[in-house]
Design a protein around this nucleic acid. Sequence first.
DNA 1: AATGCAGCCAACCGCGTCAAA
DNA 2: CTTTGACGCGGTTGGCTGCAT
Length: 263
Amino acid sequence: MVKSLSFDKNGVKKGAWSEEEDDKLRAYIQRYGHWNWGLLPQFAGVSRSGKSCRLRWMNYLRPDIKHGNFTKEEDDLIVDLHNKLGNKWSAMAAKLPGRSDNEIKNRWNTHLKKRAQEDEPTTALENEHDGSIEPDQADPKENPNLEVLQEGENFLAGSSGSPSCSSGTELSSCWMSGSDYTVSSDVVLQTSDYESSGDFWSEPFLPDITSSIDNMLSHSDLIEGYMSHDQLSCQDVTMSDELSWSMFDSYFQYNNETIDWSF
DNA sequence: AATGCAGCCAACCGCGTCAAA
DNA sequence: CTTTGACGCGGTTGGCTGCAT
């Protein structure tokens, strides 16, 4: 059911997630939020790419995620939404609280596609694009489905005001904004330790960065990088409480320094 | 009991989008 | 305007599971 464990050339673990990894990731995100998926694996202490962490969280570890069988109502809704939206899995997930886009996609491909084809054999013929809606058809009067599509898109775009987010995509932003874990994009890692060797999603992992005081030095490199390159000022850091400050606290405690915040 | 096969689903991959520099 | 980084999305794959033979 899950891919066997392997490592890529950068030492990034791939394949099935262990319970320990799940625990680490869950604990970290529940405590600090996911302020940067690219860096999160290092701080959470898991040997995974940021992309893999994000996927694992969105599809499996989120506290609001539902596991188990789909109800008939959910199935019906998926079929209905697919008729209206096409393969817009994330938009469909927005309408199905507790279900990830991946789950819905799998559900459709393994169960509902066949059922839908049997129920409505003419639908596929009527719509060359498998139910999806081309932007060129963007006239609600001409295409009633578009209203639903737009509704879904509006839902996604305008949901930030609502605390109840259902899709993986939305939850991501909710965790960012709702938890106030926002980091200025000015925050750029400057130390060579953190230089990218390519696509950040598959960047090499720095092992056990949070597990020992030695590793706190790596944090300190990071912090010094922040502070010494005019990449970051206190004002720029809007991530709240524990995330940044515990990191900073630890750093300064370790170095027995006092902080001059008057810069 | 052993083997083959299809179904299922977690995870991977590549590309697109968006914002910031 | 271009480049770069961060992230999200949808398609695809790998391999486990359960059922049939």
